[in-house]
């Protein structure tokens, strides 16, 4: 089973929920892997403190041109939608950072002048922490396209009965890539106008992708009641509410797992995991 944790708005507590679910699941004898798909700003390792294997490079395939075979027909530049390859004068130029790795240029080249080479854009690490398996990725600073790294993290993650997928914030391509094949989507929000606005976007995404989902309200006593009303009016199940507890904020700031160090919270995350099991199973 694959559970993805997403939010729309950043900083609502995705990583708190994801790391604690992975922690309580693995401590209760289940085979669990935590997969951090926020490859731009991964934070799960701060809380789970895994032992990691060496880095595996991740790249996209970009064209390499053998000028001696090129007949300057220009087809490569014509098929490319991203201006990543152009035939101009006596030369063919490749702009690797614009390439999406579709392979069109090498397919279309009539003289076999184009091969593909790996252009590194990030790296993936796998490891473990106690009984819990772990995977995360790092987009190289300055690279724009995170989805290939996200795809690589998911592919590299050790097999387990339960995968907890920690998605990046937002609702666009990196989030889509993270959650696209999950069995259940958990949306973490906070009861503020910003939190609610972005929850609505995340709900629209979940419905568009036809994913079963439920909501966790974090810092539940912080803002107003609008989020509760919205969920009630739209038949959206609130699976749990986490209080606005300064003890959680402080333990989070130090990189501690609430389910491990604070009494009562282990039970809360066990109950949440049980509810998700019922809905997704």
């Amino acid at each position: 089973m694959r559970i993805a944790i997403a939010s729309g708005k950043g900083g609502t507590g995705k990583t708190t929920v994801a790391t604690n679910l992975a922690y309580v699941g693995s401590r209760n004898g289940r085979s669990v892997v935590y997969v951090d798909c926020d490859v731009e700003e991964p934070n799960g390792h701060i809380f789970l403190k895994p032992d990691l294997d060496g880095a595996t490079p991740v790249g996209t395939l970009v064209p390499k041109v053998d000028e001696s075979k090129c007949i300057h027909c220009g087809d490569c530049g014509d098929i490319c939608q991203y201006s990543a390859i152009v035939s101009v004068g006596d030369a063919v130029l490749v702009f690797g950072e614009l390439c999406h790795g579709c392979g069109g240029c090498s397919l279309v080249c009539p003289s076999g002048a184009i091969s593909e080479v790996l252009h590194e854009i990030g790296e993936v690490h796998v490891g473990s922490t106690g009984p819990l398996a772990f995977a995360h990725g790092l987009l190289r600073v300055g690279q724009a396209m995170s989805p290939p790294v996200i795809k690589a993290v998911k592919a590299a993650a050790p097999a387990a009965d339960l995968a907890i997928i920690d998605a990046p914030p937002g609702t666009s391509c990196p989030v889509i890539e993270s959650v696209r094949d999950c069995d259940f989507l958990l949306l973490v929000t906070e009861p503020t106008p910003f939190g609610l606005n972005d929850l609505k976007l995340a709900v629209a995404m979940a419905r568009e992708m036809k994913l079963p989902f439920g909501v966790v309200i974090n810092r539940a006593d912080l803002g107003d009641r609008e989020t509760h009303l919205y969920c009630g009016n739209n038949d959206i199940e609130i699976l749990t509410e986490i209080p606005d507890d300064r003890k959680i904020a402080e333990s989070y700031s130090r990189g501690e797992l609430a389910g491990e160090v604070l009494p009562g919270y282990r039970r809360m995350f066990e109950t949440l995991l049980g509810r998700i099991d019922l809905r997704a199973g």
Binding site: S83, V86, V88, G89, F95, L98
Partner: peptide
């Protein structure tokens, strides 16, 4: 208004 690669496309155009 091209998203990316405007310089490259414009260079091809003037060439």
């Amino acid at each position: 208004a091209l998203g990316g690669g405007a310089g490259i496309q414009s260079a091809q155009l003037v060439a």
